[in-house]
Design a protein around this nucleic acid. Structure first.
Length: 672
DNA sequence: TTTAATGTCCTTTTT
DNA sequence: GGACATTAAA
């Protein structure tokens, strides 16, 4: 397919800063990939001097794939396609000497950093969840705004702020002591480095001569600053964004960066993409009407290139279970009649917890499904355990990881022993691991306790030796085997089945590690060392390696946030209720604009048909709550909606039975 | 020191 | 209703 004039214009303007305002489904990824190809094939750029940056790993992966399709083989070698965070990680790794950091640092995810904060505020906040979240949020905001602890302390106006700033300072010091970074550091540290160190800045400006940024409306202040540092005065870059799809302001994204760009780069070229190639007219009409309720900086209206399409249905179910039942029944009969595949359907919801009911219903109907977005895999305790082992192996100073696994499985190293060890380590200003080898420790710990502890740390040293000797894979295998983790799982899990599942997860993790250590020549994936593997896994990159179910025929379940950038022929938007879709917290705060954009994102995912569902009552922490239809449903054009409301309870029951019979009937037909 | 029972929070959204 | 933590008992 040829590019339309606007897309063509966006691709061919390469002599200065360029902002592409790309509505949903207007082919922005096409513009980016074609522009990369244009730069390489027609403008004399070397691929290794171009970087394309996205926000999610999924998007980065997809973009790389599409670039490889567009480009002749081998021409894409050296091209950087990554997330902001991975780019930051690359910069840190390359500049590790300049930064004066030991190699093999740990990466703390949200849970790790929360655990750290909990620890250092034990006496003051005593585990107050609300306050802890506030603190974590504030620290994250500071980091996103490039504010260091010293500056944060200077600008305090009251005691609360002083407290927060002090925690921030302590938190950072603790991170440094563990030789660790958190996610925000991956942007903050490189940005400050580039800003302050001219040599480093030159080096990276030489390396990255043309920068492309996807989903620009999602950048926060430090990310924007990183962009500015990289493009420098040359200002050769393209950013693509859509203020109507800004749904991440809660994590510091500043859609105003779109406006700021015009102020900072006066030569900025603006290209609007308004032709939509994804959705039918009715879907776009609904989306346009809905989003018109929000204020706008740039006016933009999506135009469809397809027929008007089916009416948008609203299914009002009795409760959550019934909602899931109706969706699944609808899906089965629709698939049967239209001869479609499971993967053509997506179920989109506001919060991850909503997935559960649908998962159950799909499972009982033997429908293949895939839940994406939910970081459930890396949140599993067995995975966190193994990851902690690996982190200690790679960075023994990581006391947090050390504490997690020192007694998992049981090694008779109890709290009392660890307390003594911790005190000693603190006194000597060394890590607990290092402290376990010190002679002076013998005064604190008696025979058996010391033996148990040292047996463990010596074992770790052995494994590290093995890994250093060039047998990292064997070391990891031995680690899992010799720790007795599998046996421990079977002892402690509620059932043998559960233990089996958990061990399967461990094996899968091991499989990924093995793949990453070896690399993959066909896929142009370089072999990594163990340190790198561990940091990459914490960034949850390359997870999908080895289980290429890209083409698997599965119904897609995900949050509205996770659906951004994707498209599906048939979409169910479930839980369209006040308090859920405009989320209660946003109602309380009196601003529903971002929630409306979220609804807009969901609607514009649909290509052919879109069905909204809601439950009239919903269980919320054990209590039944009556619900109201989402305000967004009322904002949609009446003529395009078809409400299916069950009026009487009786008919509702009948409908349910009928639905069940229908499903059974269809299933038997399918099985023939 | 480990297990079982009771109690408490909770539900945004993600790198 | 369910994950997770703290408490009570063995």
């Amino acid at each position: 397919m040829k590019l339309n004039p606007a897309q063509q214009e966006a691709v061919e303007y390469v002599t200065g800063p360029c902002l592409v305002l790309a509505g949903a489904g207007s082919g922005k990824t096409r513009v980016i990939t074609n522009k990369i190809a244009h730069l390489i094939l027609n403008c004399g750029y070397n691929a290794r001097n171009i970087a394309a940056v996205t926000f999610t790993n999924k998007a980065a992966r997809e973009m790389r794939e599409r670039v490889n399709q567009t480009l002749p083989k081998g021409k894409g070698r050296g091209l950087i396609v990554s997330t902001f965070h991975t780019l930051g990680l690359e910069i840190i790794k390359k500049e590790i000497k300049t930064l004066g950091i030991k190699s093999g640092f740990s990466l703390f995810d949200d849970q790790d950093s929360m655990a750290l904060l909990k620890e250092l505020t034990e006496k003051t906040l005593q585990g107050d969840k609300d306050k802890l979240r506030l603190l974590q949020n504030q620290i994250s905001n500071w980091k996103n705004d490039l504010v260091l602890p010293e500056q944060a302390k200077k600008h305090t106006t009251n005691n609360d702020e002083v407290f927060l700033a002090e925690c921030y300072e302590k938190y950072n010091r603790l991170l440094a002591a563990y030789n660790a970074f958190d996610f925000d550091d991956l942007i903050l540290v490189p940005t400050l480095l580039l800003k302050q160190n001219e040599q480093v800045r030159d080096r990276w400006q030489q390396r990255i001569r043309y920068l492309l940024v996807d989903e620009y409306q999602d950048t926060n202040s430090s990310q924007y600053e990183l962009v500015k540092q990289i493009v420098g005065r040359r200002g050769l870059f393209t950013v693509v964004g859509d203020d109507d799809q800004s749904i991440y302001s809660w994590r510091g994204a500043k859609p105003q960066n779109l406006v700021k760009l015009g102020e900072d780069f006066t030569r900025l070229k603006l290209v609007k993409l308004e032709d939509n190639y994804r959705s039918c007219g009715r879907v776009l009409h609904a989306a346009n009407i809905l989003i018109a309720n929000n204020p706008h900086v740039y006016d933009k209206k999506l135009k469809s290139n397809m027929e008007y399409g089916e009416i948008l249905r609203v299914i009002v179910a009795k409760n959550e279970e019934n909602e899931a039942e109706r969706v699944v029944a609808e899906l089965i009969s629709h698939r049967f009649m239209k001869k479609t595949s499971y993967k053509d359907y997506a179920i989109l919801y506001r919060g991850n917890h909503q997935a559960r009911v649908f998962e159950k219903m799909l499972m009982t109907n033997r429908i293949p499904y895939k839940i994406s977005g939910g970081q459930s895999f890396f949140a599993r305790s067995e995975i966190k355990d193994i990851m902690a082992y690996l982190r200690v192996l790679v960075n023994p100073d990581d006391d947090n990881a050390f504490l997690r696994i020192v007694n998992v499985p049981r090694r008779e190293i109890g709290p009392a022993t660890l307390e003594k060890l911790g005190q000693y380590a603190n006194m000597r200003h060394i890590s607990m691991f290092a402290a376990s080898f010190e002679l002076g420790l013998e005064q604190q710990l008696t025979g058996k306790r010391l033996v148990n502890l040292q047996r463990f740390t010596r074992w770790l040293v052995e494994l590290d030796d093995q890994s250093q000797r060039g047998e990292p894979l064997e070391a990891v295998r031995d680690l899992i085997k010799q720790s007795g983790y599998e046996e421990w799982l079977y002892e402690t899990s509620p059932s043998g089945k559960a233990a089996e599942m958990r061990m399967k997860n461990v094996s899968q993790l091991f499989g990924w590690i093995s793949g990453m250590l070896k690399g993959d020549e066909a896929e142009c994936i370089e072999p990594m060392n163990l340190k790198e593997v561990v940091t990459r896994l914490t960034l949850r990159e390359m997870m999908e390696q080895g289980n290429d179910e890209d083409e698997a025929d599965q119904v897609q379940l995900m949050t509205l946030h996770a659906s951004k950038g994707l498209e599906f022929p048939y979409v169910f938007m479930v839980g369209m209720e006040e308090g859920l879709l405009p989320h209660q917290t946003s109602i309380d705060e009196g601003s529903d604009e971002e929630e409306r954009r979220l609804a807009y994102v969901g609607i514009t995912r649909a290509q052919h048909e879109l069905i909204f569902t809601m439950a009239k009552e919903r269980r919320q922490f054990g209590e039944l709550i009556k619900t109201e239809p989402s305000r967004f449903l009322h904002e949609l054009p009446v003529d395009d909606l078809d409400w299916e409301v069950t009026k009487r309870k009786q008919s509702d029951e009948q409908r349910k039975e009928k639905g069940k019979a229908h499903v059974a009937n269809l299933m038997s037909m399918l099985n023939k």
